[in-house]
């Protein structure tokens, strides 16, 4: 019941926000928070629940971004038509990347995903069909509403809110299914999970593919809002890092963790950018580094883990077989 109440409050705040704080800056900020929350929530499925810390998720983000812009630039279609294509490419790519890399554990998996992401960025930078270093652009002036090219951030805000809601429902459903339980078990002890019948490799791979599909949608939405994609904005490693830090800061493996992380980090970055101007770009990295250190040192479970209902430890509930 209390959970339901909190959910309604959260939903009400999310819906009312751009109407109450209605300056273009605030609306844009809201839309960006939601956009990153979508990406971070998608990452959370494999990075949080399954504990496979991918630093290569920008590859899937790029799939979506390039597919959306490609649909317009190459076929004069609405960028919306690029979304299904982006999802298919991302899922296939996730399978190709996942089969060999998900065998690796811990840091080795993370490093392998970085390598894949950087390789992909270099390939795209040198592919003329994808606009090489210049990238692809979307429609400059909307031909119709399906081009999703708006000057105001308001329509994007509600579009992103809808997609975020869908992403969270999918995540919630997964977390409460056998798959979600298996992922959490694999995170703690893959060997034990397998001994109890959990098909570890297959489960991780499905999670990776689901996560990739949702990340690709985030990438497509990003490109639509900004109207273009280039190797840096669509495949730069910094996007992976941002997504990861947001989820970790809010609480990896918790449903609303990524949203909380995005709601803290995106405003921080936007404000520091507007205060420091172009000079701020380097500082962002410093801030990210500091945040990683702080999370790791003081709250490895993320901010939301502070509020998690504390259940009674076994010692208070009585010994397993009281003598």
């Amino acid at each position: 019941m209390r959970r339901l109440l909190w959910l309604s409050v959260l939903a009400a705040v999310a819906i009312a926000y751009p109407l109450l704080l209605s300056s273009p800056f605030q609306q844009r900020l809201g839309a960006l928070v939601l956009l990153y929350a979508i990406a971070a929530s998608a990452w959370n499925i494999v990075g949080g629940y399954a504990g496979q810390v991918s630093v290569g998720h920008v590859v899937f983000f790029g799939c979506g971004a390039y597919a959306a812009m490609g649909a317009y630039a190459k076929f004069e279609l609405s960028p919306l038509f690029g979304i299904p294509g982006g999802i298919v490419i991302a899922v296939v790519l996730a399978a190709v990347i996942g089969v060999p890399t998900l065998r690796l554990s811990g840091h080795y998996f993370s490093m392998a995903t970085i390598a894949v992401a950087e390789t992909m960025r270099l390939i795209v930078t040198n592919t003329d069909y994808l606009g090489a270093a210049v990238g692809l652009s979307g429609p400059t002036v909307a031909r119709n509403i399906f081009d999703l090219s708006f000057i105001s951030s308001l329509p994007y805000y509600y579009l992103f809110l809808l997609v975020l809601a869908i992403t969270l429902v999918i995540t919630w459903w997964m977390a409460n299914s056998r798959m979600g339980f298996y992922l959490r078990a694999i995170k703690d002890s893959e060997r034990a999970a397998r001994s109890l019948g959990a098909p570890a490799r297959r489960t991780k791979l499905y999670a990776f593919m689901l996560s990739a599909a949702l990340t690709s949608v985030a990438g497509a939405l990003y490109a639509m809002m900004f109207g273009f994609v280039d190797p840096e904005s669509g495949l730069g490693i910094l996007i992976s890092v941002k997504i990861l830090i947001m989820a970790a800061l809010g609480g990896a493996g918790l449903l609303f963790g990524p949203l909380v992380g995005a709601a803290i980090l995106v405003p921080l970055e936007e404000i520091s950018n507007s205060v420091l101007g172009g000079k701020g770009a380097g500082l962002t990295f410093v801030v990210y580094g500091a945040i990683i250190v702080l999370i790791a040192r003081f709250q490895p479970g993320g901010i939301l883990s502070l509020f998690k209902r504390r259940s009674k430890p076994a010692s208070e509930a009585g010994a397993p077989h009281a003598p």
């Binding site: 959490r184 078990a185 995170k187 703690d188 034990a192 259940s311 076994a314």
Partner: peptide, 8 residues
Amino acid sequence: QTFEGMTV
């Protein structure tokens, strides 16, 4: 090999 992040 307890799953530490879970309840009993």
